[in-house]
Simulated assay, not measured.
Amino acid sequence: MPTTLSTIGFDADDTLWQNEHFFRLTEEHFISLLAEHGEKDVLSSRLLEAERRNLKLYGYGIKGFTLSMIETAIEVTEGRVPATVIERILAAGREMLSHPVETLPHVRETLERLTGHYRILLITKGDLFDQERKLAQSGLGELFDAVEIVSEKSASTYERVFTRHGDGPAHSMMVGNSLKSDIVPAIEAGSWGVYVPHKLTWAMEHAEEPSAEPRFKRLEHLGELINLIDVIR
């Protein structure tokens, strides 16, 4: 199989900028609002169940998370949740949607070194408006040759995106913090999968490392990507 690398895709949330951190803080606030209706672990579990049910309806992102919090509040209070609590949940969601973007270490310098040498893509899933907002606020937009905001990340997604914007999956690499969404399906499509762990990962993004796959690589931080590319190309 050809190994010449021409295209590199990057995940956005928790690869280029902080994301899960704000979800965790908001969840803690949500649990404090409903503390009299259940233990922390129970409330977190009920919220995760609601998120899982609602993914196919609302997709990924803050809006779906906010609706799942409201749904959970109604369920655990058996429909008696005060309007003031609903109001505070909505306010927490709005705050998440307006929170400043915090880029992660080594992001800008790594992208700048790769720009002009490879086709650089942003491949992210989630709410269209929120992802566009974060990209604009990050100041990184000019470093990408193309941006793809998708509803789901699968092997067929990467095959389509890397064929549309590059020379196909065999000549492409996907870099991200989610084994389930960024790494495993990219490798299944025939691409390199470069895993850059974040200290926080949403429970629904957990997966086993495909350590036996020759196109799987793991880095401690994004600043190590340049050296990796020099080795594999």
Rank of each mutant, 00 (worst) to 15 (best):
L5D: 09
S6V: 01
T7C: 07
I8F: 03
I8T: 03
G9S: 07
F10P: 06
D13T: 04
D14G: 07
D14W: 04
L16F: 12
W17L: 12
Q18H: 11
Q18Y: 02
N19G: 09
E20Y: 06
E20V: 01
H21A: 08
H21S: 02
F22C: 02
F23E: 07
F23T: 00
F23S: 05
E28H: 14
F30R: 13
L33R: 14
L34F: 09
H37Q: 13
E39N: 07
D41F: 05
D41K: 14
L43T: 03
S45T: 01
L47Y: 01
E51P: 00
N54G: 04
Y60L: 05
K63L: 12
K63D: 05
T66G: 13
T66P: 06
L67V: 02
I70R: 09
T72K: 05
A73Y: 06
I74Y: 13
G79P: 04
P82W: 12
P82S: 12
P82L: 13
E87M: 03
R88V: 00
R88Q: 15
I89Y: 07
L90N: 06
L90P: 00
L90I: 10
R94D: 13
M96G: 03
S98K: 15
S98E: 15
P100R: 13
T103M: 11
V107G: 03
R108T: 12
L111M: 12
R113K: 15
T115L: 03
G116T: 00
G116M: 02
G116P: 01
H117I: 00
I120A: 09
I120T: 11
L121N: 05
L122N: 11
K125Y: 09
D127T: 14
D127R: 09
L128W: 02
L128H: 04
L128F: 03
Q131C: 03
E132P: 00
K134Y: 06
L135D: 04
Q137W: 04
S138Y: 08
V147F: 10
S151R: 08
Y158T: 00
V161W: 05
F162T: 05
F162M: 13
R164D: 11
R164T: 15
D167P: 00
P169I: 07
P169M: 10
H171S: 15
S172E: 03
M173H: 02
G176S: 07
N177S: 14
N177C: 06
S178G: 08
L179G: 03
L179K: 05
S181Y: 03
I183W: 07
P185I: 05
A186P: 09
A186R: 08
E188C: 04
E188N: 13
G190C: 14
G193V: 12
V196L: 07
P197H: 11
K199Y: 10
T201L: 15
E208S: 13
E209Y: 06
F216Y: 15
F216N: 01
R218D: 09
R218T: 04
L219E: 11
H221Y: 13
H221A: 06
E224M: 13
E224L: 10
I226Y: 13
N227Y: 07
I229V: 15
R233I: 02
